[in-house]
């Protein structure tokens, strides 16, 4: 098969980019444990409050610097509405919705995911700077959507 020299160059470039992108994706997924926010974990959306872990929404300490935050999103607030963690903590957010699709977004961080009813949506973030972090709903959920927020206090 005859290939023009330019064709060889752009095919090499294209296949090379594909290999690089897939390698980065593979390493981040299998070696660093990155995963989509909604994966296999499910919850009965009709009985969110009667089953673990959302029967006791709030912050739970896992080890010295790791916390798990079980949060229920609903129109138009989050339960709990405020959590407080020490600086340097890693917080695993486990969020579900008791009604419609919401989102859980902490601006300027990688935490930005849809909260779908029936799923336990997860993300993890390490808070290295003290301050008040705003959490917003980024997914239009009704007339009070723009009021839907909560705060995370990161204290020294």
């Amino acid at each position: 098969m005859h290939l023009h020299r330019y064709e060889k160059i752009w095919l090499t470039f294209g296949i090379g980019s594909l290999i690089i992108f897939l390698t980065v994706l593979g390493v981040s997924a299998f070696a660093m444990g990155h995963q989509p926010p909604s994966h296999m974990a499910k919850v009965d959306p009709q009985n969110v409050r009667s089953e673990a872990p959302f029967d006791e929404p709030g912050l739970r300490q896992i080890d010295e610097t790791t916390y798990q935050a079980n949060i229920i999103a609903m129109a138009f607030t989050y339960q709990p509405n405020k959590i407080e963690v020490p600086v340097g903590s890693t917080v695993r957010f486990h969020v579900t919705s008791s009604d419609v699709v919401h989102s859980f977004t902490i601006p300027n961080t990688n935490v930005n995911f849809m909260v779908t009813p029936g799923h336990i949506n997860m993300a993890e973030h390490t808070f290295t700077e003290p301050g008040t972090y705003l959490v917003l709903c980024n997914e239009y959920c009704g007339t009070g959507h723009h009021h839907m927020q909560m705060t995370i206090e990161v204290v020294e």
Binding site: Y6, I9, W10, F13, G14, S17
Partner: peptide, 13 residues
């Protein structure tokens, strides 16, 4: 005739 295609392909890439 492939010169333009080459430039455009590499630009998009």
């Amino acid at each position: 005739s492939l010169k333009g295609t080459f430039i455009f392909t590499m630009s998009i890439g």
